[in-house]
Simulated assay, not measured.
Amino acid sequence: MPELQQSYQDWKGQSIQAKRSQLKGESKDPPIPVHIQKEPPFWDVFPEKPEIFKLVVEARSLKVLRLEENRQTKEKVIRYTRKTVTGSENVDIASTWEEAVQVLQVLACRPDKEEIQRQVTAKLIENETNQQKRVLYEQLIEYINQRQVELEKEGGSDSLEYKRELKVIQDTIEAHKLYSESSSQQDTHKASETVDLTAKILENDGGAVGQTRTHVFCNKCGHKNPAESNFCSNCGSKLERLI
């Protein structure tokens, strides 16, 4: 089975290289198809490597990897941007996040994996000041909060996929010391200020208690959100409504 997997990954690598050449206007034929349908439901029965899964989650949360539309093919793709001697270029690696994890295990995509890892590492180590660490921490928290919303139909915070990604985010935060008691105290202080500010706004509005509210303020960052929102559109924190 491992030999069969390796043979298939080699074929997949040739397919990826051929497609990239075609997108650049080069003439390169893809390898002979091995699927009986255009889009197979899966292409690897083996579990992904944990280090690759971790890399994809980190790259996704830090926006090194992103979901966009290829303007030429009109297809949704997972891509990253790398610098070249003539500027920057987008590199498509997969059509879904699940496939991205598998593709980065392919030998032909090793340069992609190394470049994505380089960009992720650069973002994680460029946080010398407390402010930089806090910004990075909030970005990771915003991502995992958003994933909880996206996985709501699968159980939200109880889904296995959410728990796997949450573990990666927690380990990243701890490994790079992005969270501290001081930041927690700052959150508490800011939340207190937000409550006071909200109370003043309600008072200035003529005592809006008992009336229909049109907005709700985030207790973490103070951002003003629509009343029906459950998560802050600025920092991703869960909104707590005042009674």
Rank of each mutant, 00 (worst) to 15 (best):
E115W: 03
Q6P: 12
I201K: 06
C109P: 02
F53M: 06
D10N: 12
Q14R: 13
K177H: 11
V91T: 04
C232W: 01
Q170N: 14
K190G: 01
S61Q: 11
K24I: 01
R164E: 11
Q72M: 12
Q22D: 03
T194Q: 04
E165P: 00
Q131S: 14
E174I: 15
G156N: 00
L104I: 03
Q148F: 01
E39T: 05
L160D: 13
D112W: 03
V56F: 10
E240Q: 12
P33M: 01
E58C: 02
K54E: 13
Q102H: 13
Y179E: 15
H35P: 02
S27L: 09
Q9P: 12
G155E: 01
L140I: 10
A18S: 11
A100K: 09
D112N: 09
K113E: 14
L67F: 13
V101H: 00
T198A: 08
A94W: 05
E165K: 02
D29V: 06
N90T: 11
R71E: 12
L239V: 04
S184F: 07
K63V: 06
T73F: 00
E203D: 04
A199R: 12
I93D: 01
E193R: 15
S237D: 05
E138T: 00
T86R: 11
V56Q: 08
I93N: 01
K200L: 07
S15G: 11
R66V: 09
T84Q: 10
R79I: 07
T214E: 07
A59Y: 06
F53T: 07
I201S: 04
E89T: 14
C232M: 03
E114I: 03
Q211Y: 00
S61E: 11
K200G: 02
Q17W: 03
S27W: 06
L140M: 10
V195M: 10
E154G: 05
E240N: 11
E193C: 14
Q131F: 13
V103D: 08
I243L: 09
P33T: 02
K19L: 10
L62A: 09
T198D: 08
S61A: 15
L4H: 10
